[in-house]
Simulated assay, not measured.
Amino acid sequence: MPYEPPTHSVERSLRATTGARVVVGIDEVGRGAWAGPVTVCAAVTGLRRPPDGLTDSKLLTPKRRTELARELENWVTAHALGHASPQEIDELGMTAALRLAATRALEGLPVVPDAVILDGKHDYLGAPWRVRTVIKGDRSCVVVAAASVIAKVRRDAMMAELGDAHRDFCFADNAGYPSPVHRAALEELGPTPHHRLSWAYLDALPRWRHLKRVRFAPAVPAAEVGGQLGFDF
């Protein structure tokens, strides 16, 4: 289906209205998964012409998405990824976990952002960052689309690696998202250490629902909470 390619119009607007020179695009992947981290990519592209075919990662075939991610990692001016683990998602809730992962990504950049373009309508990042939210920014903004593709491909690769130790869950195919195979493995084997235990899917698993965690409000702001995923990404 034809689509309009993303542009630099929001970046140009931020430069004109705020004086921002370093504009970072942010997108996340893994928000709706049952297992695995939520992953955020922060990317800087400048105003150069992007690789052909750049768009929202969800509109690309897996093969093209992987090829494009490789191109983008060499094309972007800078990029960094941040993750929040399943345990952090359980402890903090998704909004705070997204903020934590995004902060880690932004702090991992070799440049200091003047402004951030965040995909969606909700600003889960907040101060001290200067944020512009853009609905469907992963389709309309070059810098967000680039972040979208890189985040998706990198998280899918991480989930495939986790799947080597949990083959019944087929993480390489479902990336931790709901699927019939994933549900069947949960019913038979119960959650792995990589599953989110505060999520509603456990309510439908009588053998395992006793494992469900009740989330309490964190005692400290999300940006101050540490935590690792257990291996180096």
Rank of each mutant, 00 (worst) to 15 (best):
F171N: 00
E67G: 03
A101C: 06
Y201M: 05
E73T: 08
R49C: 05
V134S: 08
R48H: 13
A78V: 07
E161I: 06
D90I: 12
M159G: 03
S140N: 00
L100W: 00
L81T: 11
A80M: 05
H195F: 09
P218V: 11
F169L: 01
R139C: 14
P5L: 07
L197R: 15
S13Q: 15
A69P: 03
R15D: 04
N174E: 08
A105Y: 02
G137Y: 09
P50S: 02
S9Q: 14
P50Y: 11
I117G: 00
A97L: 05
T77L: 14
E11A: 03
R209Q: 11
P37H: 08
T103K: 01
D156M: 09
L106V: 15
V220F: 09
T17F: 00
D27H: 03
P218T: 14
L92D: 02
D232E: 13
V10G: 01
I117V: 15
G36I: 11
G163P: 12
V22C: 13
L125F: 11
A184G: 08
H166W: 15
L186V: 14
D173R: 15
E91S: 13
L205D: 05
P110H: 06
A204Y: 08
G137C: 06
V181R: 15
L72F: 12
H210F: 13
W34R: 02
A160N: 07
L211N: 01
M158P: 00
D156H: 03
L125G: 09
L59D: 01
Q87G: 12
Q87K: 12
T61D: 01
G25A: 06
A43M: 10
K152G: 12
E28L: 10
P206L: 10
K212M: 14
A175D: 03
G120Q: 07
A35W: 01
G32P: 04
A184P: 09
H195N: 04
V153Q: 03
S198D: 08
L60R: 02
L229F: 04
L197Q: 07
R21L: 10
E67M: 08
S9P: 00
K63T: 14
P180Y: 03
I135L: 15
G19W: 13
R139H: 07
T192A: 01
A172D: 15
D52K: 05
A165T: 07
K121R: 15
P86A: 12
G30D: 12
W75G: 02
P191N: 02
G230H: 10
H195V: 08
H194E: 10
E71R: 10
L118Q: 01
K212E: 06
C141W: 03
M1L: 05
R15C: 07
L98W: 09
M158H: 15
G93F: 09
R209T: 01
S140W: 04
V143I: 14
G190P: 09
Q87H: 10
T77D: 15
K58Y: 14
